[in-house]
Simulated assay, not measured.
Amino acid sequence: MKHTLSVLVNDQPRVLARVAALLGRRNFNIESISVGESEERGLSRMVIVTHGDERTMEQVQKQLHKLVDVIKVQDLSDHPAVERELLLVKVEAGPAARIEISGILEPFRASVVDVGSHSLMVQATGERSKLDALLDLLRPYGIKELARTGVTALSRSVSRVGV
């Protein structure tokens, strides 16, 4: 089962390495990991996507809590959450293919962020499955380069106003 962990940590050197090493020692494959500043100065938020059963994930959370620099661990899979990822992809696109590609991008709310003589760079954000679907449609044109940020996520508020 897929799990998305939100881990609040002290913003210190080597914390990411220690967390990744802990997961590696337990034979967990990290599908994605993203780290950035949090709402509190001096703390960073790691969002880790991995797979495992409930019992195993409970053990991982207990082990993470034992690390000195870990402040809080939350399994977002247990709660409603918003998950997003950023995708940059450079696609082969001569002048004739650009109109076709623009038609593909529109429903995904993706945008062209750079234009070369024989390529376009596209930016898209959303859930992983949405970005995978966009890539499937762009592959026939030829993907020259691809970069993904990995998933970032926050739990939803208990009472939501608007979306």
Rank of each mutant, 00 (worst) to 15 (best):
H3G: 03
T4D: 10
T4M: 07
L5T: 02
S6A: 15
S6C: 00
V7A: 06
V9A: 02
N10C: 11
P13A: 14
R14A: 00
R14H: 00
R14C: 00
A17N: 04
A20M: 05
A21S: 07
L23W: 02
L23H: 01
G24L: 06
G24Y: 06
G24E: 04
R25S: 01
R26E: 03
N27S: 15
N27Q: 14
I30V: 09
I30P: 06
E31I: 07
E31W: 04
S32T: 13
S32N: 03
I33H: 04
I33S: 04
I33F: 04
S34Q: 08
V35A: 07
V35S: 06
E37G: 11
S38W: 06
S38L: 09
E39C: 04
E39Q: 09
E39Y: 10
E39D: 12
G42M: 09
S44D: 12
V47K: 06
V47C: 15
V47Q: 05
I48S: 02
D53M: 05
E54I: 10
E54H: 14
T56G: 00
E58T: 13
Q59C: 03
K62Y: 01
Q63D: 08
V68K: 00
V70P: 07
V70W: 02
I71P: 02
I71F: 13
K72W: 07
K72M: 05
V73H: 14
Q74M: 12
D75M: 05
L76D: 06
L76W: 08
S77K: 03
D78H: 12
D78R: 13
D78E: 15
H79L: 15
A81P: 01
V82H: 12
E83H: 11
E83I: 13
E85G: 07
E85N: 10
K90L: 12
V91P: 03
G94F: 11
R98Q: 14
R98K: 08
I99R: 08
E100G: 00
G103M: 09
G103N: 11
I104V: 14
I104Y: 09
E106L: 11
R109C: 15
V112Y: 12
D114V: 07
G116V: 06
G116T: 01
G116C: 04
S117C: 09
S117T: 14
M121G: 03
M121V: 13
V122G: 07
V122R: 05
Q123T: 01
A124G: 08
A124W: 00
A124C: 14
A124Y: 02
T125I: 15
T125A: 11
E127M: 10
R128A: 05
S129P: 00
K130T: 09
K130F: 03
K130P: 01
D132E: 11
A133G: 04
L135I: 05
L138C: 03
R139L: 07
I143N: 04
I143R: 02
I143Q: 00
E145A: 13
E145M: 10
T149M: 13
G150I: 03
T152D: 06
T152A: 15
L154C: 12
S155Q: 13
S155K: 12
S155W: 07
S155L: 07
S155H: 14
R156G: 09
S157F: 08
S157P: 04
S159R: 15
V161F: 10
V161D: 05
V161T: 13
V161R: 15
V163M: 11
V163F: 10
